[in-house]
């Protein structure tokens, strides 16, 4: 799969994003481990994802 790059909001490392990202999709920063939410797709912009809430799940 072709990938594009964005930047981690926490450590500024380059983060790979799938070439078909969707708003709301989560990517992990492989450098600092932060979960990042895709908030814009063209070009991809990431922000720190919301913390896990107690009622999340299936």
């Amino acid at each position: 799969m072709k990938r594009t790059m964005a930047h981690c909001t926490e450590c500024d490392a380059e983060v790979t994003v799938p070439d078909d990202p969707l708003v709301g999709e989560i990517v992990d920063c492989t450098v600092c481990g932060t979960e990042l939410e895709t908030v814009e797709v063209s070009p991809p912009v990431l922000q720190r994802a919301p913390e896990l809430a107690e009622d999340w799940g299936e």
Partner: peptide, 13 residues
Amino acid sequence: ALSRVRTDEKALM
């Protein structure tokens, strides 16, 4: 209707 897009939602779409 969703918030976080998981692998599941992408597959459904």
